[in-house]
Design a protein around this nucleic acid. Structure first.
Length: 475
RNA sequence: GGCGCGUUCGUCUAGUGGCCUAAGACGCCACCCUUUCAAGGUGGAGAUCACGGGUUCGAAUCCCGUACGCGUCACCA
């Protein structure tokens, strides 16, 4: 038997929201698993809910993926041999398959109104019949022929899955092992809506089959809908793919990661100055661990060492603090010139600031160890671009001292960090002031801030004229 | 409530019957370095492995119950 190519997919819905960090996590694992097996990673747009559809959000979703370097082999904008990759463009397919099921008695037409359904549900809940299930009214009252004729005459209908009674439906989850369900507890799921669009359950099975997806890697919240899909695979007599249900990312209070309690939109991380590779690295630490215990590793290395079996089923808490540390590690290990370009690009794209190339280049060695995110740059370095507009220390009482600093620095022949440092250290000693206190006064006089990059070097970069001028301004 | 999944330091994880009086990382604390802040170095606090029963010479590791957490029960995905 020849080995089949691994094909994975993610299927986001264009509902107006951009990509959720949890979806990025799922995308990452799908991507990595495909690459590890020299397979293909596919993106399919699931836009079967007309009421929630927002035009344009599809492009944004795809861009989110690209921003993080998760390039797909097949998808709406890149094509592929199993297209189209947008479900609304494949409508006739689902309808055909849905009626095939009706024909073979794996499904039936249902004409019940939304109102009747919600009343039914309500009554069942009152009677504590759990869980609420459709009562098969239409299956009992119409024969297949009658139903089909009614439908042809224009009566709005949905197609429902006819879930067999008294069966145990089980499947193997690659992370958790065997999971089984009692078919009596499964509702007769709607497969085709009255507007002719398929529901998720039908569309996902049809498309995964037609697109030859053999690993369905998705979030844990899909576990309970898996048996419905298994039933569909069986009815169609299609091979069942392998299922991998990933743990869901959690808020610190252990509820499912939500926008109320955590930043969840992936572009937020970019705006905040996190590096895509650091975010991906952090995400790969969620539920997974490097076999050698490494915590910092590239996407390429992840692909090399990744194994589904090493994924933990426990829902991990997403910890922004550790992400910041990791991002700082990435920044520190980056060549200066690369960091410089990233900072310039970041401020241009997200802060609408055009920073001077050569000035940023000079400051890089001073802040590289200090910043955790690209957005921290301005916190440390704004004084290079603008004179202080307020001072974090009251300098009035140090007027005489600052005057002395001014005169010594004016006389300084060569304006280098070392010379500045030596000269000022001498002054401090002569004045009988502690080095710490002395330099703090100078620091605030020059930068306005108490927390800055190394002072002497900063002053060298600022230049003699500018430093003297700033001292004059505070006396 | 039914069903499903889960439960090792605050957090992410290691651990697959004896090497565990439980290891690493983030965070926290202290000290060293130091001209602020970082970075770096050293050390420390922090988990009766949810609880209760088994199985076994021996259990964080296997089995069963309980508790708790999470998910799911739509013509949403």
């Amino acid at each position: 038997m020849s080995k089949v190519q691994v094909r994975t997919r993610i299927a986001p819905s264009p509902t107006g929201q951009e990509m959720h960090i949890g979806n990025l996590y799922t995308a990452l694992i799908n991507f990595v698993w495909a690459k590890k097996n020299k397979g293909r990673f596919i993106v399919r747009i699931e836009d079967t809910d007309r009421t929630r559809y927002v035009p344009g959000s599809e492009q944004r979703l795809l861009q989110n993926l690209k921003d993080f370097g998760l390039f797909y082999d097949e998808g709406p904008d890149v094509g592929g041999e199993f297209g189209p990759y947008v479900q609304s463009q494949r409508l006739s397919l689902y309808k055909k398959y849905a009626f095939e099921l009706v024909e073979q008695d794996f499904a039936y037409l249902c004409f019940c109104s939304q109102q009747r359904l919600s009343e039914l549900r309500q009554k069942q809940q009152e009677q504590k019949i759990m869980p609420p299930k459709y009562d098969r009214f239409c299956l009992k009252t119409y024969s297949k022929q009658q139903a089909l004729e009614l439908y042809k005459s224009g009566k709005p209908a949905v197609v429902r899955l006819k879930v067999p009674e008294d069966q145990v439906i089980d499947f193997v989850d690659e992370i958790r092992g065997k999971i089984s369900f009692d078919s009596n507890l499964i509702d007769d799921q709607v497969l085709l809506k009255s507007d002719g669009y398929p529901t998720y359950h039908l569309a996902v099975v049809v498309d995964d089959y037609l697109m030859k997806i053999n690993y369905v890697i998705r979030a844990e919240e899909w576990i309970s809908s898996t048996p419905k899909q298994i039933l569909l695979y069986r009815a169609f007599n299609w091979p069942v793919p392998k299922f991998v249900h990933l743990p869901v990312l959690r808020n610190p209070d252990r509820s499912k990661l939500s926008k109320r309690k955590n930043p969840v939109w992936v572009s937020w991380y970019l705006q905040e100055g996190f590096l895509p590779e650091a975010v991906l690295n952090y995400l790969s630490l969620m539920g997974f661990s490097h076999p050698e215990g490494k915590e910092i590793f590239s996407l390429k290395e992840l692909i090399k060492v990744f194994d589904i079996k090493r994924i933990n089923p426990v829902g991990p808490v997403f910890d922004l603090v550790k992400l910041e540390w990791l991002n700082g590690e990435y920044i520190r290990s980056m060549p200066d010139s690369v960091l410089k370009d990233k900072i310039i690009l970041y401020y241009k794209n997200f802060k609408d600031k055009q920073l001077d190339q050569s000035l940023v280049a000079k400051t890089i060695p001073l802040i590289k160890e200090r910043i955790k995110k690209l957005s921290d740059y301005w916190f440390y370095c704004s004084f290079f671009w603008q004179r202080p507009d307020n001072y974090q220390l009251d300098l009035k009482s140090y007027k005489d001292l600052i005057l002395k600093m001014l005169s010594r620095l004016t006389d300084l022949s060569e304006w280098t960090a070392d010379n500045i440092g030596n000269e000022m250290t001498n002054l401090a000693k002569q004045e009988g002031l502690s080095i710490g206190k002395f330099f703090m006064i100078l620091r605030v006089a020059i930068t306005g801030q108490k927390i800055t990059p190394p002072l002497n070097e900063s002053m060298e970069i600022l230049g003699k004229d500018e430093c003297l001028e700033r001292l004059r301004l505070v006396v």
